[in-house]
């Protein structure tokens, strides 16, 4: 009986990058997991939380707890949303003991995608092949809140035909930052261009990350200046063959 995995696909993947979600399912099923997609899921509440709307974030987070309360594992193709659930639910439920308890129970079950592969599935080679030179962008929340740094690189290292070229500013923010990207659009755009300069210096033809939000920012800025570089979620790379 293969282990059951609940996919929290995130609202951004659901609405804008469905292929990333399919790639996650593909990789997990290939490894023998039974993937479940609770259809009542929406968002983790992070947009409201990061914008200072704690009560609105709490409402959405409660919904999340209801939807995923009986999951064995929750896999999330996003460092940022994983961190919201695993770390910040504690902050927003500090005055709701019952929900705090439910949030804490989820904490040990929720996994960012790459971490799930390495720590639960116990694989670093998923049998993928991609003939391309890529560079890896550390999304801030995966890197700093979840300490996801070597894992994605290990997984990429096992992809046949793939060459990983590190950029000089891999750990520097792409400038997305949720509503920051529109509240301080000029600053955010400047940060994206700094990031792109670093990407271009590697000569890679694709940027890989574990967060679709960062990739939307990077791809949007790349597309604006018309560079021949594409962005790929790690799951898309690992689903290639």
């Amino acid at each position: 009986m293969p282990a059951r995995v609940s996919l929290f696909v995130t609202c951004i993947v659901d609405q804008l990058f469905p292929k990333v979600g399919l790639a996650v399912v593909d990789v997990l099923e290939r490894l023998g997991f039974q993937v479940d997609f609770p259809e009542q899921q929406t968002c983790c509440g992070q947009p409201a939380f990061n914008s200072g709307y704690r009560e609105e974030a709490r409402q959405v987070a409660r919904h999340f707890l209801d939807v995923f309360h009986d999951a064995d594992y929750i896999v999330v193709p996003s460092g940022s949303c994983t961190s919201m659930i695993a770390h910040h639910f504690e902050d927003i439920f500090d005055k709701e003991p019952e929900n705090l308890e439910r949030a804490r129970r989820l904490e040990s079950k929720v996994y960012e995608f790459s971490r799930f592969l390495l720590e639960v599935a116990g694989v670093d080679d998923v049998g993928a092949r991609l003939d391309e030179v890529v560079t890896y962008h550390d999304s801030c929340h995966a890197l700093r809140e979840l300490k996801v740094k070597d894992g994605p690189r290990r997984l990429l290292g096992k992809v046949r035909g793939l060459e990983l070229r590190e950029m000089d500013a891999a750990e520097e923010c792409c400038g997305f930052g949720g509503t920051f990207s529109v509240k301080f659009a000029e600053v955010s755009g400047g940060m994206a261009r700094t990031k792109i300069d670093s990407i271009v210096r590697t000569g890679a033809s694709a940027v890989v990350s574990v967060d679709s939000s960062c990739l939307m920012q990077i791809q949007g800025a790349i597309s604006r200046v018309g560079l021949p570089i594409r962005t790929l979620h790690l799951a898309e790379v690992l689903a290639s063959r």
Binding site: V13, F17, G21, F37, A192, G220, R224
Partner: peptide, 16 residues
């Protein structure tokens, strides 16, 4: 500052 992804024909849940 940036381009925007146009909407995909179907959301993930529809494809699912």
């Amino acid at each position: 500052q940036r381009d925007l992804p146009s909407a995909p024909a179907k959301s993930f849940r529809q494809l699912w």
